[in-house]
């Protein structure tokens, strides 16, 4: 079953196109990552899904309903900024938003407790939001997004600005939400995060979806099964040798990278570069960052 479906959605600000015939589908229960550089159209896409902006063309359906004020009840959004009321307690923040979603009555207290427990804040229910750590505030923001039991959860940069420990906690929380059956659309600049969490990934560039699929499917987009990173004072020699071997080369920061069409043992690689002084050499599997850079460069 498809939870979210965009079909040839376009949007322009004045004469500047921001989304161009964007089509994508997110299946129920999956985590879909929307990636792209700044200005690619991610935030515009989210604004359209949340009915804060109207698309110029195309159709958007959430749980088979066209986007409208009513579909706001199907969506939970945790924005990039932690938008909570600092002088309210965790419980009061949740209750306030629950009321806005029309939740009240006897079932409300248990719903508040369930949400707080889901994000691990049960013991901080009566703490003022301003006294929480950054990671806890982000979790409270997530609890607010979950208060009305949405079918689709939109997470905009869910771990940006969090320390490593809080980031791991948030990742585990997102996985747990998926196990609970919630469909998740997330945007992130952290490719590591997308790689760890997402079932499928869409790469957005200048308002167009230039690649989409699972990590395994995306790996097929570049002619490499392994990346070798080398540091050497004789780069020209190393590149010449790689060219002889039909290994494409790229530069990632200070590292010179060769794309190997098939994995090799380290001793085989060293033999191939025999006679060239190597300061360091490292083998890496093909990762999302390699795919992303290549697709964005050529796409």
């Amino acid at each position: 079953m498809t939870m979210l479906h965009l079909d040839r959605v376009s949007k322009a600000y004045g004469k500047r196109p921001v989304l161009q015939d964007l089509s994508l589908s997110v299946a129920a229960g999956e985590i879909y990552g929307l990636l792209g550089p700044n200005g690619a159209g991610k935030t515009t896409t989210l604004n359209i899904l949340c009915n804060l902006l109207k698309a110029d063309r195309g159709t958007i359906r959430i749980n088979d309903q066209p986007v409208s004020e009513r579909t706001k009840l199907l969506i939970g959004v945790a924005p990039q900024e932690t938008l909570i009321y600092r002088y309210l307690t965790c419980q009061e923040n949740l209750q306030f938003f629950a009321n806005l979603y029309g939740l009240r009555g006897r079932s409300l207290p248990s719903r508040l407790q369930t949400c707080l427990a889901a994000v691990g804040l049960s013991d901080r229910a009566t703490s003022l939001a301003e006294t929480l750590s950054g990671g806890m505030q982000r979790r409270l923001s997530l609890a607010i997004a979950l208060i009305h039991q949405p079918k689709l959860l939109i997470l905009d940069e869910p771990t940006t600005g969090l320390d490593l420990e809080a980031r791991f906690e948030m990742w585990e929380l997102i996985r747990q939400l998926q196990r609970d059956g919630i469909t998740i659309l997330l945007t992130t600049h952290l490719l590591d995060e997308a790689e760890r969490l997402c079932d499928r990934i869409g790469l957005l560039k200048q308002g167009q979806l230039i690649a989409a699929g699972s990590l395994a499917e995306l790996r097929q987009l570049i002619p490499a099964q392994e990346i070798v990173l080398v540091q050497t004072t004789q780069e020209e020699q190393a590149i010449a040798r790689a060219t002889e071997l039909n290994y494409p080369h790229h530069r990632y920061g200070n590292d010179l990278a060769f794309w190997l069409p098939a994995p090799l043992e380290l001793k085989e690689i060293l033999a191939q570069f025999d006679g060239i002084p190597l300061d360091s050499i490292a083998r890496q599997p093909v990762r999302l960052e390699h795919i992303y850079l290549e697709v964005m460069r050529s796409g």
Binding site: E69, I75, E81, L83, L100, I144
Partner: peptide, 13 residues
């Protein structure tokens, strides 16, 4: 200033 207005717009308020 605190951008909580954005969060309100996301709700059916």
């Amino acid at each position: 200033e605190q951008h909580t207005l954005k969060r309100l717009f996301l709700s059916p308020l």
